[in-house]
Computed example of a mutant assay.
Amino acid sequence: MIDPFGRTIDYLRVSVTDRCDFRCTYCMSENMTFLPRKELLSLEELDRLCSLFIEKGVRRLRLTGGEPLVRKNIMHLIGQLSRHLQTGALDELTLTTNGSQLSRYAAELADLGVKRINVSLDTLDPDKFRAITRWGDFSRVMAGIDAAQEAGIKVKLNAVALKNFNDLEIPQMIRWAHGRGMDITLIETMPMGEIELDRTDQYLPLSLLRTQLQREFSLEEIAYKTGGPARYVKVAETGGRIGFITPMTHNFCESCNRVRLTCTGTLYMCLGQEDAADLRAPLRASEGNELLSEAIDRAIGRKPKGHDFIIDRRHNRPAVSRHMSVTGG
């Protein structure tokens, strides 16, 4: 699949649910209204959609949410999708998780061919963790990371950099992650969905944070890539890697290779744009995939060049109305 700007689309992110067992303050409101279950695609429909995308050239598939592991019978879907790893049609099947369910599922994920996962973790302070997630249990996440590593799954941490919350703690998080053999990726907060807080009070440019980190660490630019938008450096003092995802300070869209599918069958060609394609209707209109394939081709044909994210006092409304949990980041 080639978009209008010559970019090969070989990475699909699938939000299997908009529900989550946390309520992270930068992501969603505490009193969220989630989609009625009847609007969600069935696991069989998600498998059919993902399998067609793989036929059309997707090589990397990432399951997201919300929290993907709270979707009922999610391991059945992962088991079905793992057949594409066995045939070689898919290079990687992975997921992004908050870690709360990993103790339960890590061993089975490893058995199904999941070799690496991303765990979202913004602080190592249990009290601050409870404050930022509202409902989260820090010890449960730590146990989940332990279980994943014991199962042989490579863990990478994702941390959203938040001004006056975790900015001073990030060097400690880097040392802790690298000490356990985990890379860490730092992410700028993005203006998606209405939340109770003012994002201009949360926003920390990673260009500023990187300057601060260079006072403590020797950072070496490296060519390492994982298929996503992060740019990586190696830390001489620890031997580990730090990724920087900078949608606000450095638009990474020129190398975008991904599209995002929601649990209702809506395809977003860009995280930061509202344009979307309905794949549920053609999916359910025929047992064959011809209509569905044509709908996907039309959607890829209008993938935009980039997003329009902006955060400042003059633009204090979300760039897009949907919450991050709808499309999974």
Score class of each variant (00 low, 15 high):
Q101I: 02
S325W: 06
L102N: 09
C24W: 09
G328L: 12
D21H: 08
I174Q: 04
A148C: 09
E294Q: 14
I311Q: 09
R215C: 02
L261T: 15
N289K: 15
D111F: 03
M190T: 08
G136A: 07
E287D: 14
N73V: 11
D312M: 12
A230F: 05
K56Y: 03
I117C: 05
D127L: 13
P126W: 01
K163L: 10
A319E: 03
W176P: 06
H84F: 12
F138D: 13
D278N: 15
R215G: 09
I296R: 04
S42D: 10
G144N: 11
C20R: 04
I311E: 07
F252V: 05
L162W: 00
R140N: 11
P68F: 06
T87D: 05
Y203K: 01
L77Y: 10
G243W: 00
L61W: 08
F244W: 08
A281F: 02
E287V: 15
G79C: 09
P205D: 06
E44N: 10
I54F: 01
I170V: 11
T25A: 12
R210H: 04
N98D: 14
E55L: 13
W135T: 10
E188D: 04
G265W: 07
N166G: 03
C270L: 12
D3R: 12
M182N: 01
I245P: 02
G88Y: 01
L271I: 15
N316G: 14
P126G: 02
Y203V: 09
P229R: 06
S139I: 06
R134H: 00
A230T: 00
L77I: 13
N166V: 01
C27N: 09
R62M: 03
P171E: 07
P191H: 04
E216P: 03
A177M: 07
F309M: 09
F138P: 11
L69V: 12
I242D: 01
Q86T: 13
D275E: 15
L95Q: 03
L43T: 08
R231V: 05
N164Y: 03
L292F: 08
F309D: 04
R175A: 13
M248W: 06
E188A: 09
D125R: 03
M173W: 01
V326N: 00
G99S: 11
S103T: 13
S139T: 14
E39P: 07
L12H: 09
V70R: 10
M190W: 06
F252S: 08
I310S: 14
P205M: 07
R116K: 13
K303S: 08
